[in-house]
Design a protein around this nucleic acid. Sequence first.
DNA 1: ACATTTGTCAACCATTTGGTTAAACTAAAT
DNA 2: ATTTAGTTTAACCAAATGGTTGACAAATGT
Lengths: 203, 203
Amino acid sequence: MTSEKQSTPENNILNAAKEIFQKKGMAAARMQEIADEAGINKAMLHYYYRSKELLFEAVFKSAFSMIAPQLNEIMNADTTIFEKIKNFSSNYIAFVIKHPYLPNFIIQELNRNPEFVKNLIADKNFPNISKFKQQVNEKVAEGAIRSITAEQLFINIMSLNIFPFIGAPLLKGFLNFDDEAYKKLLDKRKTEVADFIINAIKL
Amino acid sequence: MTSEKQSTPENNILNAAKEIFQKKGMAAARMQEIADEAGINKAMLHYYYRSKELLFEAVFKSAFSMIAPQLNEIMNADTTIFEKIKNFSSNYIAFVIKHPYLPNFIIQELNRNPEFVKNLIADKNFPNISKFKQQVNEKVAEGAIRSITAEQLFINIMSLNIFPFIGAPLLKGFLNFDDEAYKKLLDKRKTEVADFIINAIKL
DNA sequence: ACATTTGTCAACCATTTGGTTAAACTAAAT
DNA sequence: ATTTAGTTTAACCAAATGGTTGACAAATGT
């Protein structure tokens, strides 16, 4: 309710810019297109955000800040590894179904400019997986789960959750699925991914 | 030996274009930069490949044809599911370590233009996973592996193998790994990924 | 009421970019 | 030696693009 984003010009522009940048990427996005989307003059963009580069940075940081805290919260919660895997998978997939361009946008632009990640790490909310790492190491030492490094497990969790969205066009082609069928398949993954991972490490 | 690519002007241009397009993407790539990379005049690009669009298509198809047959061959081989998973994981990871920009390039451009995948499907060598599907369904029916649809398993295999490359900048950041450490981790995945998947479905 | 700041716009500008052209060079064929 | 076909280049062009300007309106403060 009160947490609704206000409709200031800055916000209006930012939302329009998100739309265009996330759909097309930095290089292919046009300032005129963003202005049209926002329903304002092109000069306004420069009035509020000096340059395309700065507008892009604002969009990128805003996008990243939508994902990072979620990851952080779940990974540092006071829950078991299995619960973390379940929570992350269902939350993340539900979230991305609503924001389908987000993961590809972030991955794509980080590949374009890998040093940009340093910029993000400085941020307070940058995800920290030390608690998760510690938990995994403990459970492995106890013999409660199969031997695996926390890093490999973490990569597996991220891969299984994120790639089906980023690789959607390719996977749809391979599987010969239309949009509708693929969407159903993704929805099932909210629980299937966690089951798969847990089966892989459970003894 | 005799299979070495000839050094025709077309080939020279194509290699230069691959380099630039794969690093920067269609929109950010500049014809002048490709010409410089190829050590020729910009007009030559248009002489041999009429337009940027056509040059890009040539690069894309060439890139895709480097990956597709591999997938096809392994998935339709006369081997067990477990062997297919092992072969694909080790082969694919070894291959992509040598061509790090390839998967991201393909994924990115297919997201930019999803209809393009139809173009690829028409090709004879487009991957066909029907044999793999049939094998999985049989094994599940026999009770030899855990219940899972072939499609979900296929997506899991692809995700675990491809995403660590595409998401490298992000994952390096999350894990706080430098290039060297991350490379070692990827190398270990040549076997670890298959083990993980097999553990997940084995009964 | 007046002045000052802030917001908005159409027109404009400099540069970049994909693409073209016409002339020059090369090497084999006649 | 001359023709012919293919190859290469510098110079050029029109369109697109990020960004600026100066005039004007709408708030805002005094």
